[in-house]
Nucleic acid binder design. Structure first.
Lengths: 279, 279
DNA sequence: CGAGAGGTTGAATAAAGTCAACAAACGTGG
DNA sequence: CCACGTTTGTTGACTTTATTCAACCTCTCG
């Protein structure tokens, strides 16, 4: 049974937490719903919690929510209450500009925390759409901050997660601002590969869950350019493409494939000049 | 007397905070250095602190540091200890890629907090360079988090600041991903104007402190394209340009000047189709 | 006053977008 | 399980856009 977006934000309060004491097992099953302990959440977020015992005694469980492909976890304008931690499946976060044109911002997957861009507002400023069936842990933000106040490690962890997101957005800005289409697609493949590797999946063969259109929107390119670039890389022997399945043959080539369109030669001359001046 | 980047991180600990009790005045002068109270910091950050009295009794002062035009507040690789709140002047945050090519990420000014992208690391991942002489409040991050732990409003404020930054980066990604050169320059002018207005300065006439090169890097364009676009807007009567002084005649025109290169007509058709299907 | 950095403008080139046709995969219902 | 229509992906020809290279101008600051 899948929850709709409206009911998912309510459901948390329904349950009687007192009935469910935290034990050793990873995930609790109760009344057909899954619950995660704070321990699970921290592990998924790769939070290094030193004082495990004190924190893990917290009488706190977080509910799992499921969404079917195409469903929205949250939408623009919806009241902000929760952040969500992905445990399985793939999503996209988007905004829709004035005329239905959607802009993709990220492709969250396992261990990504989403909804954090709404913290400073009362309402969500973007929306999260499931690209496949997926499962998330719903974390009431006020509960999280309350926890952070009691446990220094937790609040520092939240800061770090937000800061990390900031850096990743910054890298995205760098990608869009300084790389041509080839470089952008290469970097997209590399970072996707890195992400899969980090989660213990194959770094060389994986299935993209998004369309060329969505990749294009994410990279600031048209779907045709994405398609062409992938074909080109395939012809160059760097990758194999079969629909949404990508096999990477030479990750190193892709990694160094970041050419800089702006002022290539001019800045080189400048750099040489500066080097000479310094010597 | 201006502080160099290396000494600026040390200087904080030198001073004897106990000598300086917080009073009513905004800024304390001691031994030729300026100090701000937590109250000042919160005001600059536009933090709505409800329980003023309890927080403001904190025996906590933050040192002002000055930098001359061209100096670096922090550099890549430098240990992360402080975040900095701008009180006057203009800066840029950048990274340098493999071959001296610099990428501009933001142009911080009064009331902006910088250095937050390094929270999740031991070291800074970008660098902040003064575009003009400027003054910042150095805030030791560990002191800030300690404060946040004691005062719910403060820790929430930190979350909000980080989240707000996240949204602004996201908007930048939108700008770079979906707008052509014209739209990017227009949006740059509009958001600069908004920022000035918000600080109480003129929204229609202001002085850009950065070069065309730096604007270009920020917007993912070449300096020539920036120059040409400004000339075009000037000829169209939307703005006046005189070196780095910009006068905006029709902010509304600039605000709506966000054309979308990708799939202009196609998505319109789709949207119409979808609307029909919904009805 | 002169050197150098920053800014503007023009002409040629390269890159990505647009439009269109086609092919392949998917999913739905008979 | 197959046939059908729909969606998604590929490729080509052409157009538009922004970059590149170069010349020239204009401020600023020793």
């Amino acid at each position: 049974m899948y929850l709709s977006q409206t009911s998912s934000t309510k459901r948390y309060n329904d349950a009687k937490l007192s009935l469910l004491k935290s034990g050793n097992s990873s995930v609790k099953l109760s009344r057909g719903k899954l619950w995660s302990t704070l321990h699970d959440v921290c592990e998924l977020l790769k939070i290094n919690v030193q004082s495990y015992s004190s924190i893990m005694n917290e009488d706190m469980l977080f509910q799992h929510v499921k969404f079917k492909s195409g469903q929205r976890v949250y939408t623009i304008g919806q009241p902000f209450e929760m952040v969500y931690l992905v445990t399985s499946g793939f999503l996209k976060t988007i905004i829709n500009d004035e005329l239905g044109n959607e802009q993709v911002f990220s492709f969250p997957m396992k261990s990504d925390l989403i909804g954090t861009d709404a913290i400073h507002m009362k309402h969500h400023v973007s929306e999260a759409v499931a690209l496949t069936d997926c499962e998330l842990i719903a974390i009431p933000f006020d509960k999280l901050t309350a926890l952070g106040r009691r446990h220094p490690n937790v609040d520092l962890a939240i800061y770090k997660i937000l800061s990390k997101e900031l850096t990743s957005k910054q890298q995205m800005i760098g990608t869009l601002g300084a790389l041509n289409s080839e470089g952008r697609v290469a970097r997209f493949l590399v970072s996707t590969s890195d992400k899969f590797a980090q989660l213990g999946y194959s770094a060389s063969t994986f299935n993209l869950r998004m369309s060329r259109q969505e990749i294009g929107s994410y990279l600031g390119l048209t779907l045709e350019t994405v398609s062409r670039t992938l074909s080109m890389m395939s012809q160059a022997g760097l990758i194999s493409v079969e629909q949404r399945t990508i096999q990477i043959h030479s990750i190193d080539a892709l990694r160094t494939m970041r050419r800089l369109p702006p002022n290539k030669t001019r800045n080189k001359a400048k750099a040489a000049e500066a080097a000479k001046a310094a010597a």
